[in-house]
Nucleic acid binder design. Sequence first.
DNA 1: GCCTGATCGTCAGCGGGCTGTAAGCGGGGG
DNA 2: CCCCCGCTTACAGCCCGCTGACGATCAGGC
Lengths: 219, 219
Amino acid sequence: MRLLLVEDDEMLGQAIRDHLVAHGHAADWTRRLDDADAAQLAVAYDAMLLDLNLPDGRGMEFLKRLRRRGDTTPVIIVTAMDQLTMRIEGLNAGADDYLVKPFDLGELLARVGAVGRRYAGNPNPLIVVGPLELDPPHKLATVNGRKLDLSAREWAVLERLAQHPGTLVSRMQLEEALFGFGDEIESNAVEVYVSRLRKKLDAGVIHTVRGLGYRLAPQ
Amino acid sequence: MRLLLVEDDEMLGQAIRDHLVAHGHAADWTRRLDDADAAQLAVAYDAMLLDLNLPDGRGMEFLKRLRRRGDTTPVIIVTAMDQLTMRIEGLNAGADDYLVKPFDLGELLARVGAVGRRYAGNPNPLIVVGPLELDPPHKLATVNGRKLDLSAREWAVLERLAQHPGTLVSRMQLEEALFGFGDEIESNAVEVYVSRLRKKLDAGVIHTVRGLGYRLAPQ
DNA sequence: GCCTGATCGTCAGCGGGCTGTAAGCGGGGG
DNA sequence: CCCCCGCTTACAGCCCGCTGACGATCAGGC
Protein backbone atom coordinates (compact mmCIF):
# COMPACT_ATOMS: atom_id res chain seq x y z
CA MET A 1 0.00 0.00 0.00
CA ARG A 2 1.02 3.59 -0.49
CA LEU A 3 1.20 5.25 2.87
CA LEU A 4 1.89 8.72 4.19
CA LEU A 5 3.55 9.06 7.57
CA VAL A 6 3.41 12.39 9.40
CA GLU A 7 5.78 12.27 12.35
CA ASP A 8 8.17 14.90 13.69
CA ASP A 9 10.36 12.66 15.81
CA GLU A 10 13.38 11.66 13.73
CA MET A 11 14.14 8.36 15.40
CA LEU A 12 10.57 7.14 15.57
CA GLY A 13 9.75 8.33 12.07
CA GLN A 14 12.74 6.57 10.62
CA ALA A 15 11.91 3.37 12.46
CA ILE A 16 8.28 3.36 11.37
CA ARG A 17 9.11 4.20 7.79
CA ASP A 18 11.75 1.46 7.58
CA HIS A 19 9.35 -1.05 9.04
CA LEU A 20 6.60 -0.16 6.60
CA VAL A 21 8.94 -0.29 3.64
CA ALA A 22 10.40 -3.57 4.84
CA HIS A 23 6.91 -5.01 4.70
CA GLY A 24 6.24 -4.06 1.16
CA HIS A 25 4.52 -0.72 1.60
CA ALA A 26 5.47 2.44 -0.22
CA ALA A 27 5.82 4.92 2.59
CA ASP A 28 6.37 8.65 2.26
CA TRP A 29 7.39 10.49 5.38
CA THR A 30 6.89 14.16 6.15
CA ARG A 31 7.80 15.91 9.38
CA ARG A 32 5.49 18.87 8.97
CA LEU A 33 1.86 19.36 8.16
CA ASP A 34 2.30 21.68 5.20
CA ASP A 35 4.49 19.05 3.56
CA ALA A 36 1.84 16.48 4.36
CA ASP A 37 -0.76 18.71 2.75
CA ALA A 38 1.24 18.99 -0.44
CA ALA A 39 1.94 15.27 -0.52
CA GLN A 40 -1.70 14.45 0.07
CA LEU A 41 -2.72 16.59 -2.87
CA ALA A 42 -0.12 15.09 -5.14
CA VAL A 43 -0.48 11.42 -4.33
CA ALA A 44 -3.47 9.20 -3.72
CA TYR A 45 -2.48 7.39 -0.56
CA ASP A 46 -4.15 4.22 0.61
CA ALA A 47 -3.85 5.27 4.21
CA MET A 48 -2.23 7.87 6.41
CA LEU A 49 -0.50 7.71 9.76
CA LEU A 50 -0.93 11.02 11.57
CA ASP A 51 0.85 12.01 14.76
CA LEU A 52 -1.40 14.46 16.56
CA ASN A 53 1.34 15.62 18.90
CA LEU A 54 3.21 17.73 16.39
CA PRO A 55 5.17 20.89 17.29
CA ASP A 56 2.63 23.18 15.66
CA GLY A 57 -0.18 21.19 17.19
CA ARG A 58 -2.51 21.55 14.25
CA GLY A 59 -2.82 17.87 13.46
CA MET A 60 -6.49 17.84 14.34
CA GLU A 61 -7.12 20.85 12.12
CA PHE A 62 -5.37 19.07 9.29
CA LEU A 63 -7.57 16.01 9.67
CA LYS A 64 -10.75 18.09 9.76
CA ARG A 65 -9.71 20.06 6.70
CA LEU A 66 -8.99 16.81 4.89
CA ARG A 67 -12.47 15.51 5.58
CA ARG A 68 -14.05 18.86 4.79
CA ARG A 69 -12.66 18.80 1.29
CA GLY A 70 -14.13 15.35 0.77
CA ASP A 71 -10.97 13.32 1.09
CA THR A 72 -11.79 9.85 2.40
CA THR A 73 -8.26 8.50 2.71
CA PRO A 74 -8.19 6.25 5.78
CA VAL A 75 -6.38 7.96 8.64
CA ILE A 76 -4.82 6.27 11.64
CA ILE A 77 -3.99 8.75 14.35
CA VAL A 78 -1.11 8.33 16.77
CA THR A 79 -1.25 9.78 20.26
CA ALA A 80 0.51 9.48 23.56
CA MET A 81 -1.01 7.40 26.28
CA ASP A 82 -2.55 10.25 28.26
CA GLN A 83 -4.31 12.11 25.51
CA LEU A 84 -7.64 10.34 25.62
CA THR A 85 -9.68 13.40 24.70
CA MET A 86 -7.62 13.96 21.59
CA ARG A 87 -8.28 10.39 20.52
CA ILE A 88 -12.00 10.78 20.93
CA GLU A 89 -11.93 14.11 19.15
CA GLY A 90 -9.86 12.52 16.41
CA LEU A 91 -12.31 9.72 15.85
CA ASN A 92 -15.10 12.25 15.73
CA ALA A 93 -13.13 14.31 13.25
CA GLY A 94 -13.03 11.39 10.86
CA ALA A 95 -10.11 9.18 11.84
CA ASP A 96 -10.52 5.48 11.12
CA ASP A 97 -8.39 4.06 13.89
CA TYR A 98 -5.87 5.07 16.49
CA LEU A 99 -2.63 3.86 17.96
CA VAL A 100 -1.35 4.62 21.43
CA LYS A 101 2.34 5.34 21.92
CA PRO A 102 4.36 3.38 22.59
CA PHE A 103 3.11 0.77 20.20
CA ASP A 104 4.46 -2.42 18.74
CA LEU A 105 5.49 -2.22 15.12
CA GLY A 106 3.64 -5.44 14.40
CA GLU A 107 0.54 -3.84 15.83
CA LEU A 108 1.04 -0.93 13.49
CA LEU A 109 1.20 -3.23 10.52
CA ALA A 110 -1.93 -5.02 11.64
CA ARG A 111 -3.87 -1.77 11.91
CA VAL A 112 -2.69 -0.62 8.51
CA GLY A 113 -3.66 -3.96 7.04
CA ALA A 114 -7.05 -3.86 8.72
CA VAL A 115 -7.80 -0.40 7.42
CA GLY A 116 -6.72 -1.50 3.98
CA ARG A 117 -8.89 -4.60 4.06
CA ARG A 118 -11.86 -2.63 5.33
CA TYR A 119 -11.77 -0.53 2.19
CA ALA A 120 -10.85 -3.38 -0.08
CA GLY A 121 -14.40 -4.70 0.03
CA ASN A 122 -15.96 -1.46 -1.12
CA PRO A 123 -17.56 -1.32 -4.51
CA ASN A 124 -14.68 -0.78 -6.84
CA PRO A 125 -13.87 2.85 -7.40
CA LEU A 126 -13.60 2.28 -11.13
CA ILE A 127 -12.09 5.20 -12.98
CA VAL A 128 -13.53 5.67 -16.46
CA VAL A 129 -12.02 8.17 -18.88
CA GLY A 130 -13.35 7.85 -22.39
CA PRO A 131 -12.35 4.43 -23.71
CA LEU A 132 -10.06 3.90 -20.75
CA GLU A 133 -11.01 2.02 -17.59
CA LEU A 134 -8.81 1.78 -14.51
CA ASP A 135 -9.44 -0.53 -11.59
CA PRO A 136 -6.90 0.57 -8.98
CA PRO A 137 -7.42 -2.14 -6.36
CA HIS A 138 -7.20 -4.86 -8.99
CA LYS A 139 -4.44 -3.04 -10.82
CA LEU A 140 -6.32 -3.69 -14.04
CA ALA A 141 -6.53 -1.34 -17.00
CA THR A 142 -8.53 -1.74 -20.21
CA VAL A 143 -8.99 0.27 -23.39
CA ASN A 144 -12.16 -0.53 -25.31
CA GLY A 145 -12.36 -3.78 -23.39
CA ARG A 146 -8.84 -4.77 -24.37
CA LYS A 147 -6.77 -5.58 -21.30
CA LEU A 148 -3.53 -3.71 -20.92
CA ASP A 149 -0.35 -5.34 -19.69
CA LEU A 150 1.38 -2.57 -17.79
CA SER A 151 4.55 -2.55 -15.77
CA ALA A 152 4.59 -1.13 -12.26
CA ARG A 153 5.81 2.33 -13.28
CA GLU A 154 3.59 2.52 -16.30
CA TRP A 155 0.64 1.82 -14.06
CA ALA A 156 1.76 4.45 -11.58
CA VAL A 157 1.92 7.14 -14.24
CA LEU A 158 -1.40 6.19 -15.81
CA GLU A 159 -3.15 6.05 -12.46
CA ARG A 160 -1.82 9.45 -11.49
CA LEU A 161 -3.10 10.88 -14.75
CA ALA A 162 -6.49 9.27 -14.34
CA GLN A 163 -7.05 10.35 -10.76
CA HIS A 164 -8.42 13.67 -11.87
CA PRO A 165 -9.52 13.18 -15.48
CA GLY A 166 -9.25 16.31 -17.56
CA THR A 167 -7.08 18.02 -14.97
CA LEU A 168 -3.63 19.06 -15.97
CA VAL A 169 -0.89 17.06 -14.27
CA SER A 170 2.54 18.66 -14.16
CA ARG A 171 5.71 16.83 -14.96
CA MET A 172 6.81 17.15 -11.35
CA GLN A 173 3.68 15.43 -10.11
CA LEU A 174 4.34 12.56 -12.46
CA GLU A 175 7.93 12.34 -11.28
CA GLU A 176 6.59 12.02 -7.77
CA ALA A 177 4.43 9.15 -8.95
CA LEU A 178 7.47 7.48 -10.48
CA PHE A 179 9.98 8.06 -7.72
CA GLY A 180 9.66 9.02 -4.09
CA PHE A 181 9.84 12.55 -2.86
CA GLY A 182 13.40 12.71 -1.63
CA ASP A 183 14.83 11.49 -4.88
CA GLU A 184 15.54 14.55 -6.96
CA ILE A 185 16.00 13.43 -10.49
CA GLU A 186 16.77 15.11 -13.76
CA SER A 187 15.99 13.10 -16.82
CA ASN A 188 13.25 12.61 -19.36
CA ALA A 189 11.87 9.56 -17.60
CA VAL A 190 8.36 11.00 -17.57
CA GLU A 191 8.38 11.50 -21.32
CA VAL A 192 9.69 8.00 -21.81
CA TYR A 193 6.87 6.50 -19.80
CA VAL A 194 4.27 8.66 -21.51
CA SER A 195 5.63 7.41 -24.80
CA ARG A 196 5.50 3.80 -23.65
CA LEU A 197 1.95 4.27 -22.45
CA ARG A 198 0.79 5.89 -25.69
CA LYS A 199 2.13 2.93 -27.57
CA LYS A 200 -0.02 0.59 -25.48
CA LEU A 201 -3.27 2.54 -25.46
CA ASP A 202 -5.13 4.31 -28.21
CA ALA A 203 -3.79 7.51 -29.72
CA GLY A 204 -5.22 10.77 -28.46
CA VAL A 205 -5.87 9.57 -24.92
CA ILE A 206 -2.90 11.30 -23.31
CA HIS A 207 -2.78 14.93 -24.37
CA THR A 208 0.33 17.09 -24.07
CA VAL A 209 0.09 20.67 -22.87
CA ARG A 210 3.34 22.15 -23.97
CA GLY A 211 5.39 23.64 -21.15
CA LEU A 212 2.87 22.70 -18.50
CA GLY A 213 2.26 18.98 -18.36
CA TYR A 214 -0.18 16.31 -19.45
CA ARG A 215 -3.89 15.70 -19.26
CA LEU A 216 -6.06 12.69 -19.88
CA ALA A 217 -8.73 12.62 -22.60
CA PRO A 218 -10.38 15.96 -21.89
CA GLN A 219 -12.98 15.01 -24.50
CA MET B 1 -27.73 -22.62 11.34
CA ARG B 2 -24.62 -24.51 12.31
CA LEU B 3 -22.82 -22.59 15.03
CA LEU B 4 -19.61 -22.91 16.99
CA LEU B 5 -19.53 -21.56 20.54
CA VAL B 6 -16.19 -20.96 22.26
CA GLU B 7 -16.78 -20.29 25.93
CA ASP B 8 -14.88 -21.51 28.97
CA ASP B 9 -17.50 -20.74 31.61
CA GLU B 10 -19.49 -23.93 32.19
CA MET B 11 -22.74 -22.35 33.33
CA LEU B 12 -22.83 -19.65 30.69
CA GLY B 13 -21.73 -21.99 27.93
CA GLN B 14 -24.40 -24.51 28.80
CA ALA B 15 -27.07 -21.80 28.92
CA ILE B 16 -26.09 -20.31 25.57
CA ARG B 17 -25.84 -23.67 23.89
CA ASP B 18 -29.24 -24.80 25.20
CA HIS B 19 -30.82 -21.58 24.09
CA LEU B 20 -29.37 -21.83 20.59
CA VAL B 21 -30.42 -25.46 20.23
CA ALA B 22 -33.88 -24.69 21.57
CA HIS B 23 -34.28 -22.20 18.76
CA GLY B 24 -33.42 -24.62 16.02
CA HIS B 25 -29.67 -24.07 15.63
CA ALA B 26 -27.05 -26.79 15.59
CA ALA B 27 -24.51 -25.61 18.13
CA ASP B 28 -21.11 -27.11 18.87
CA TRP B 29 -19.46 -25.95 22.07
CA THR B 30 -15.76 -26.00 22.85
CA ARG B 31 -14.11 -24.65 25.97
CA ARG B 32 -10.64 -24.22 24.54
CA LEU B 33 -9.14 -22.63 21.50
CA ASP B 34 -7.27 -25.62 20.17
CA ASP B 35 -10.54 -27.57 20.17
CA ALA B 36 -12.16 -24.65 18.38
CA ASP B 37 -9.36 -24.68 15.85
CA ALA B 38 -9.85 -28.36 15.14
CA ALA B 39 -13.63 -28.01 14.92
CA GLN B 40 -13.31 -25.02 12.60
CA LEU B 41 -11.08 -26.98 10.27
CA ALA B 42 -13.37 -29.98 10.26
CA VAL B 43 -16.78 -28.33 9.96
CA ALA B 44 -18.02 -25.45 7.84
CA TYR B 45 -19.84 -23.33 10.40
CA ASP B 46 -22.30 -20.61 9.47
CA ALA B 47 -21.17 -18.43 12.35
CA MET B 48 -19.03 -18.46 15.44
CA LEU B 49 -19.43 -17.04 18.94
CA LEU B 50 -16.03 -16.25 20.41
CA ASP B 51 -15.39 -15.32 24.02
CA LEU B 52 -12.26 -13.22 24.08
CA ASN B 53 -11.80 -13.55 27.82
CA LEU B 54 -10.52 -17.11 27.79
CA PRO B 55 -8.07 -18.57 30.32
CA ASP B 56 -5.24 -18.70 27.85
CA GLY B 57 -6.16 -15.25 26.57
CA ARG B 58 -5.38 -15.97 22.94
CA GLY B 59 -8.86 -15.42 21.60
CA MET B 60 -7.75 -12.41 19.59
CA GLU B 61 -4.85 -14.35 18.14
CA PHE B 62 -7.24 -17.08 17.14
CA LEU B 63 -9.49 -14.64 15.32
CA LYS B 64 -6.58 -13.05 13.52
CA ARG B 65 -5.21 -16.40 12.48
CA LEU B 66 -8.62 -17.37 11.19
CA ARG B 67 -8.83 -14.33 8.97
CA ARG B 68 -5.24 -14.65 7.93
CA ARG B 69 -5.82 -18.03 6.44
CA GLY B 70 -8.76 -16.63 4.52
CA ASP B 71 -11.57 -18.03 6.63
CA THR B 72 -14.56 -15.71 6.33
CA THR B 73 -16.88 -17.45 8.78
CA PRO B 74 -18.85 -14.71 10.54
CA VAL B 75 -17.53 -14.18 14.07
CA ILE B 76 -19.39 -12.54 16.93
CA ILE B 77 -17.05 -11.73 19.78
CA VAL B 78 -18.12 -11.66 23.40
CA THR B 79 -16.41 -9.39 25.92
CA ALA B 80 -16.97 -7.99 29.36
CA MET B 81 -18.25 -4.49 29.78
CA ASP B 82 -14.93 -2.82 30.52
CA GLN B 83 -12.88 -4.21 27.64
CA LEU B 84 -13.47 -1.49 25.10
CA THR B 85 -10.06 -1.76 23.49
CA MET B 86 -10.49 -5.47 22.97
CA ARG B 87 -13.74 -4.85 21.17
CA ILE B 88 -12.17 -2.29 18.88
CA GLU B 89 -9.22 -4.56 18.26
CA GLY B 90 -11.59 -7.44 17.64
CA LEU B 91 -13.54 -5.58 15.01
CA ASN B 92 -10.29 -4.57 13.37
CA ALA B 93 -9.14 -8.16 13.44
CA GLY B 94 -12.14 -9.17 11.39
CA ALA B 95 -15.03 -9.75 13.76
CA ASP B 96 -18.51 -9.10 12.36
CA ASP B 97 -20.29 -8.08 15.54
CA TYR B 98 -19.86 -8.11 19.29
CA LEU B 99 -21.87 -8.75 22.42
CA VAL B 100 -21.24 -7.21 25.81
CA LYS B 101 -21.58 -9.37 28.90
CA PRO B 102 -24.01 -9.68 30.48
CA PHE B 103 -26.29 -9.97 27.50
CA ASP B 104 -29.85 -11.03 26.95
CA LEU B 105 -30.27 -14.37 25.26
CA GLY B 106 -32.85 -12.89 22.91
CA GLU B 107 -30.27 -10.30 21.94
CA LEU B 108 -27.84 -13.07 21.18
CA LEU B 109 -30.34 -14.79 18.88
CA ALA B 110 -31.02 -11.54 17.10
CA ARG B 111 -27.32 -10.96 16.45
CA VAL B 112 -26.80 -14.48 15.23
CA GLY B 113 -29.79 -14.18 12.93
CA ALA B 114 -28.57 -10.86 11.56
CA VAL B 115 -25.09 -12.17 10.86
CA GLY B 116 -26.58 -15.26 9.26
CA ARG B 117 -28.85 -13.26 6.97
CA ARG B 118 -25.94 -11.11 5.92
CA TYR B 119 -24.15 -14.16 4.59
CA ALA B 120 -27.22 -16.17 3.59
CA GLY B 121 -26.34 -16.21 -0.10
CA ASN B 122 -23.92 -19.07 -0.51
CA PRO B 123 -23.91 -22.07 1.79
CA ASN B 124 -21.02 -23.80 0.05
CA PRO B 125 -18.81 -21.18 -1.54
CA LEU B 126 -17.10 -23.01 -4.37
CA ILE B 127 -14.47 -20.81 -5.93
CA VAL B 128 -14.12 -21.27 -9.69
CA VAL B 129 -11.37 -19.54 -11.60
CA GLY B 130 -11.03 -20.73 -15.16
CA PRO B 131 -10.02 -24.40 -15.06
CA LEU B 132 -9.43 -24.20 -11.33
CA GLU B 133 -11.96 -25.15 -8.66
CA LEU B 134 -11.46 -24.63 -4.94
CA ASP B 135 -13.67 -25.99 -2.19
CA PRO B 136 -12.40 -24.21 0.94
CA PRO B 137 -14.50 -26.00 3.59
CA HIS B 138 -13.37 -29.36 2.28
CA LYS B 139 -9.89 -28.19 1.36
CA LEU B 140 -10.23 -29.65 -2.12
CA ALA B 141 -8.74 -28.29 -5.31
CA THR B 142 -9.12 -29.51 -8.88
CA VAL B 143 -7.82 -28.44 -12.26
CA ASN B 144 -9.86 -29.61 -15.24
CA GLY B 145 -11.41 -32.24 -12.99
CA ARG B 146 -8.00 -33.54 -11.98
CA LYS B 147 -7.65 -33.58 -8.21
CA LEU B 148 -4.68 -31.72 -6.80
CA ASP B 149 -2.60 -33.02 -3.94
CA LEU B 150 -1.55 -29.88 -2.11
CA SER B 151 0.39 -29.41 1.10
CA ALA B 152 -0.95 -27.12 3.82
CA ARG B 153 1.09 -24.08 2.76
CA GLU B 154 0.47 -24.64 -0.89
CA TRP B 155 -3.23 -24.66 -0.17
CA ALA B 156 -2.94 -21.49 1.91
CA VAL B 157 -1.24 -19.61 -0.90
CA LEU B 158 -3.62 -20.85 -3.58
CA GLU B 159 -6.69 -20.06 -1.50
CA ARG B 160 -5.43 -16.59 -0.75
CA LEU B 161 -4.93 -16.02 -4.46
CA ALA B 162 -8.35 -17.39 -5.35
CA GLN B 163 -10.31 -15.44 -2.76
CA HIS B 164 -10.65 -12.52 -5.10
CA PRO B 165 -10.00 -13.87 -8.58
CA GLY B 166 -8.32 -11.37 -10.80
CA THR B 167 -7.33 -9.20 -7.87
CA LEU B 168 -3.71 -8.48 -7.43
CA VAL B 169 -2.29 -10.04 -4.27
CA SER B 170 0.91 -8.54 -2.95
CA ARG B 171 3.80 -10.55 -1.72
CA MET B 172 3.17 -9.31 1.80
CA GLN B 173 -0.40 -10.60 1.74
CA LEU B 174 0.86 -13.98 0.68
CA GLU B 175 3.48 -13.93 3.42
CA GLU B 176 0.68 -13.27 5.88
CA ALA B 177 -1.08 -16.32 4.53
CA LEU B 178 2.08 -18.36 5.01
CA PHE B 179 3.31 -17.01 8.33
CA GLY B 180 1.86 -14.79 11.00
CA PHE B 181 2.12 -11.06 11.35
CA GLY B 182 4.76 -10.78 14.01
CA ASP B 183 7.11 -13.17 12.28
CA GLU B 184 9.62 -11.01 10.53
CA ILE B 185 10.81 -13.01 7.61
CA GLU B 186 13.19 -12.36 4.81
CA SER B 187 13.28 -15.01 2.20
CA ASN B 188 11.77 -15.92 -1.11
CA ALA B 189 9.36 -18.43 0.40
CA VAL B 190 6.45 -16.91 -1.51
CA GLU B 191 8.21 -17.39 -4.82
CA VAL B 192 9.10 -20.93 -3.90
CA TYR B 193 5.49 -21.80 -3.17
CA VAL B 194 4.28 -20.10 -6.30
CA SER B 195 6.80 -22.15 -8.21
CA ARG B 196 5.65 -25.37 -6.54
CA LEU B 197 2.03 -24.51 -7.25
CA ARG B 198 2.70 -23.76 -10.90
CA LYS B 199 4.29 -27.13 -11.25
CA LYS B 200 1.14 -28.81 -9.97
CA LEU B 201 -1.49 -26.86 -11.88
CA ASP B 202 -1.65 -25.81 -15.50
CA ALA B 203 0.66 -23.16 -16.86
CA GLY B 204 -0.65 -19.65 -17.14
CA VAL B 205 -2.99 -19.86 -14.18
CA ILE B 206 -0.87 -17.84 -11.77
CA HIS B 207 0.22 -14.62 -13.37
CA THR B 208 3.13 -12.53 -12.12
CA VAL B 209 2.88 -8.76 -12.02
CA ARG B 210 6.44 -7.70 -11.65
CA GLY B 211 7.12 -5.47 -8.67
CA LEU B 212 3.52 -5.67 -7.45
CA GLY B 213 2.50 -9.23 -6.78
CA TYR B 214 0.52 -12.11 -8.24
CA ARG B 215 -2.94 -12.60 -9.68
CA LEU B 216 -4.98 -15.61 -10.63
CA ALA B 217 -6.15 -16.55 -14.12
CA PRO B 218 -7.66 -13.53 -15.88
CA GLN B 219 -5.42 -11.74 -18.37
C1' DG C 1 12.32 -45.67 19.90
C1' DC C 2 13.74 -45.80 15.17
C1' DC C 3 13.10 -45.38 10.38
C1' DT C 4 11.08 -43.34 6.32
C1' DG C 5 8.91 -40.13 3.54
C1' DA C 6 6.89 -35.70 3.09
C1' DT C 7 7.05 -30.94 3.97
C1' DC C 8 9.20 -26.72 5.05
C1' DG C 9 12.38 -22.72 4.89
C1' DT C 10 16.66 -21.14 2.97
C1' DC C 11 20.08 -20.38 -0.44
C1' DA C 12 22.44 -19.52 -4.74
C1' DG C 13 22.72 -19.27 -9.63
C1' DC C 14 20.53 -17.96 -13.65
C1' DG C 15 17.69 -15.53 -16.99
C1' DG C 16 14.95 -11.85 -18.46
C1' DG C 17 11.99 -7.98 -18.22
C1' DC C 18 12.07 -3.44 -16.36
C1' DT C 19 14.22 0.92 -15.88
C1' DG C 20 16.83 5.18 -16.43
C1' DT C 21 19.82 7.57 -19.53
C1' DA C 22 21.27 9.46 -23.67
C1' DA C 23 21.14 10.69 -28.43
C1' DG C 24 18.77 11.78 -32.65
C1' DC C 25 14.74 13.64 -34.66
C1' DG C 26 10.59 16.52 -35.50
C1' DG C 27 7.60 20.29 -34.92
C1' DG C 28 5.79 24.49 -32.99
C1' DG C 29 6.53 29.09 -31.45
C1' DG C 30 9.00 33.23 -31.39
C1' DC D 1 14.85 30.66 -39.67
C1' DC D 2 16.35 29.14 -35.31
C1' DC D 3 15.73 27.45 -30.82
C1' DC D 4 13.57 24.88 -27.49
C1' DC D 5 10.76 21.34 -26.03
C1' DG D 6 9.02 17.01 -26.33
C1' DC D 7 8.90 12.35 -28.74
C1' DT D 8 10.98 8.12 -29.84
C1' DT D 9 14.30 4.54 -30.03
C1' DA D 10 18.20 2.09 -28.48
C1' DC D 11 20.90 0.15 -24.95
C1' DA D 12 23.18 -1.46 -20.90
C1' DG D 13 22.77 -2.35 -16.04
C1' DC D 14 20.27 -4.23 -12.67
C1' DC D 15 16.89 -5.77 -9.87
C1' DC D 16 13.41 -9.17 -9.51
C1' DG D 17 11.55 -13.43 -9.84
C1' DC D 18 12.21 -18.51 -11.02
C1' DT D 19 13.89 -22.93 -9.92
C1' DG D 20 16.74 -26.80 -8.41
C1' DA D 21 18.92 -28.41 -4.38
C1' DC D 22 19.76 -29.19 0.54
C1' DG D 23 19.38 -29.69 5.49
C1' DA D 24 16.03 -29.51 9.22
C1' DT D 25 11.86 -30.69 11.07
C1' DC D 26 7.66 -33.28 11.46
C1' DA D 27 4.27 -37.11 11.09
C1' DG D 28 3.27 -41.72 10.76
C1' DG D 29 4.26 -46.74 10.67
C1' DC D 30 6.61 -50.58 12.48
